[in-house]
Every structure is written in C-alpha cells, then in structure tokens.
C-alpha cells in the first residue's frame, strides 16, 4: 500500500499525463461528434506535451539562461538549471499539433458541405443512402 502511494505521489506528473491521455483516447473512440473527436485528439497530444515538459523540470532549477563568463569558468552546474531541450522539442510538437488540427478542421468543413452534418452516425447513414 505504501509503495503504491509513494509511486503515486512521487511520480504524479506521469499519472496526470496518463489520465489526460486516456480522456483524449475515450473521446476519440466514443464520441460521435467529429468536433469532439478532434478535441479528444488535441487532449491526447497535449498530454504528451505535458509529459515531455514535466521531465525537464528540476527541484529548485533556474531558467536555462546562463552567464557566458560563468559558463566558461565552469561555475554553472547542470543540476541547477531546468533542462531546456524538452521545451524546444515540444515547441516543434505544438507546431505539428496545430497543423494537424488545421487540416482536420478544413477536412471537417468539407465533410459538412458534403453531408450537412458532423455527427458520425448521421454521416454514415447518408453515405449508405448515397451508395445503394
């Protein structure tokens, strides 16, 4: 019991990302409304961004802007500053996520023009009527 609690509290960032990811996953699988599916997808991506960002954090870490002279003198300890690399990676991942969302929204507009609905059940019904 104790070990389980310690795991839960000490690694709470991982638990939060898993829970968020599952919420997104649920929305993608279960929701019939395409916009809700898309929001689920965004939650899914954001969970992973959160996971990456949280791995860069350090207790008492400073922002990763260091003094040039100090760095040359070897006075900067890596343990004192937050790891900036995950943040940089996630900047790219956010760009990717925004582009995917953009393409998905544009696609959804085309779907709405074609079928007059963004509800998956209604669309599938209309697809059946289109193709005898």
């Amino acid at each position: 019991m104790d070990g389980w609690l310690v795991d839960l509290v000490a690694k709470y960032n991982y638990w939060i990302y898993v829970v968020l990811m599952m919420i997104g996953f649920y929305a993608m699988i279960r929701k019939n409304n395409l916009v809700k599916k898309l929001i689920g997808m965004n939650i899914f991506q954001t969970a992973i961004i959160l996971f990456f960002i949280s791995t860069g954090a350090k207790k008492g870490g400073r922002i990763p802007i260091v003094d040039y002279e100090q760095a040359l003198a070897g006075a900067v300890q890596a343990a004192d500053i937050v790891n900036p690399l995950p943040h940089v990676l996630m900047l790219t991942a956010i760009v990717v996520s925004v582009s995917v969302t953009g393409v998905a929204l544009a696609t959804m507009l085309k779907i709405y023009k074609e079928y007059g609905s963004i509800d998956e059940d209604q669309i599938l019904e209309r697809v059946k009527n289109h193709e005898p």
Binding site: L38, M41, I48, E114
Partner: peptide
C-alpha cells in the same frame, strides 16, 4: 465524395500512431 470523411478517420488514427512514436522517443530520451 467520401474522401474527406476517410481522410478525417486517417487523421485521428495517424495522429495516435505519431503520438505513440513520440512517446517512445520521449522514454528513450
């Protein structure tokens, strides 16, 4: 016709695939 709808399903599935890959890279990092 059905192309946008098929593309939307692909977007959802493809993003899940890419996110899994990204998570894998995250653990390796």
């Amino acid at each position: 016709g059905r192309a946008p709808l098929s593309s939307f399903n692909y977007i959802i599935m493809g993003t899940v695939g890419a996110c899994f890959y990204l998570l894998g890279v995250g653990y390796l990092y």
